[in-house]
């Protein structure tokens, strides 16, 4: 890979030739940045600006009013907010880790190993991708009920684990790894598991990072499981809690609380993104696949 040295992906010098590319990218970049700015500013808007029409993106007179209201509302409820945060962290962490593990393992098997029924399974997965998740709500509830997992963390975790999209992405990336690489390892006496661990995993790091982010945000904002499978208030997640807070309060005051809640929910998302950014931007160039 010419042009890549170590981890500094930026060229050292600015050249005139770059100007046209930067000019093309800059306006688009501004559009891309709008939602972030909007979310942050929205949380700090006072009441009259929240309902301004047409909506303003920037805030003129920032206040902490919304946050104060949010904490006041949460102080009134029986269960402390930290409990919801704890639930959310546990659920999200386990879903992200397990779904990465499962989807890379299955992706490796489906892409590189030989066994009977492989193609049928692939087709089944691809068809399952298309299915509307809303429609399987009730049967899923029945399954979870039958397994006795209501009001446990499993009810949060299991429905999201089988993530066909993640498997699909990972499998496509593993397909790109040349068989010769694996054959060489087999010749040197590596077992399947060894190959999975020391060849496949390092090579598809960017795909893993992407899957991790997708899984993370899917779980983090998910209210469905708290809504349907959990009756016990203390087992529900943060996303659900913030949602209800906004709905419980009157519509006008709720807007401010909702804006603040969304910002709070959004910050971990951003943090994960910034942490994983390095891994999916740098490793792509070094994956050694040609």
């Amino acid at each position: 890979m010419a042009g890549y040295k170590g981890s500094n992906i930026n060229p050292k010098k600015f050249e005139i030739g770059q100007l046209k590319i930067i000019l093309a990218l800059l306006p688009l970049a501004v559009f891309m940045g709008i939602p972030i700015v909007f979310i942050v500013c929205h949380a700090f808007k006072p009441m009259d600006e929240l309902f301004a029409f047409p909506p303003q993106i920037l805030v003129h007179k920032p206040t902490l009013d919304n946050f104060v209201k949010l904490f006041k509302a949460s102080a009134d409820s029986n269960i402390p907010m930290s409990r919801y945060v704890f639930n959310s962290v546990i659920v999200t962490g386990s879903v992200v880790l397990l779904s990465i593990l499962f989807s890379t393992m299955a992706g490796f098997a489906l892409s590189k190993l030989r066994f009977k029924g492989k193609y049928a399974l692939l087709e089944i997965n691809n068809t399952a991708l298309m299915f509307v998740s809303v429609a399987v709500m009730i049967p899923r509830y029945l399954v979870i009920d039958a397994l006795g997992m209501k009001d446990t963390y499993f009810a949060h975790i299991l429905p999201l684990l089988a993530m066909p999209v993640g498997l699909f992405l990972v499998k496509q990336f593993i397909d790109q790894i040349p068989d010769a690489l694996l054959d060489a390892a087999y010749m040197d006496g590596a077992s399947d598991f060894k190959i999975y661990r020391s060849i496949i995993i390092p090579l598809i790091k960017p795909a893993i990072a992407t899957t991790a982010i997708l899984a993370f945000q899917q779980v983090w904002v998910n209210v469905e499981s708290s809504n349907f499978y959990i009756n016990d208030e203390s087992m529900k997640t943060l996303a659900f809690y913030l949602n209800t807070l906004a709905n419980q309060n009157s519509n006008v005051a709720g807007q401010g609380i909702q804006a603040a809640g969304i910002l709070i929910q959004f910050i971990p998302n951003l943090a994960i993104f910034l942490i994983l950014r390095k891994s999916f931007m740098n490793t792509m160039a070094h994956s050694g696949i040609k």
Binding site: N10, P11, L28, A29, M32, G33, P35, I36, R277, M281
Partner: peptide, 19 residues
């Protein structure tokens, strides 16, 4: 392409993933 501030631009364009 090789441009300056590429890391920054990439970050901006990947941002929609999380929103």
């Amino acid at each position: 392409q090789k441009i300056s501030c590429r890391g920054f631009f990439r970050m901006i364009f990947f941002l929609p993933i999380i929103i």
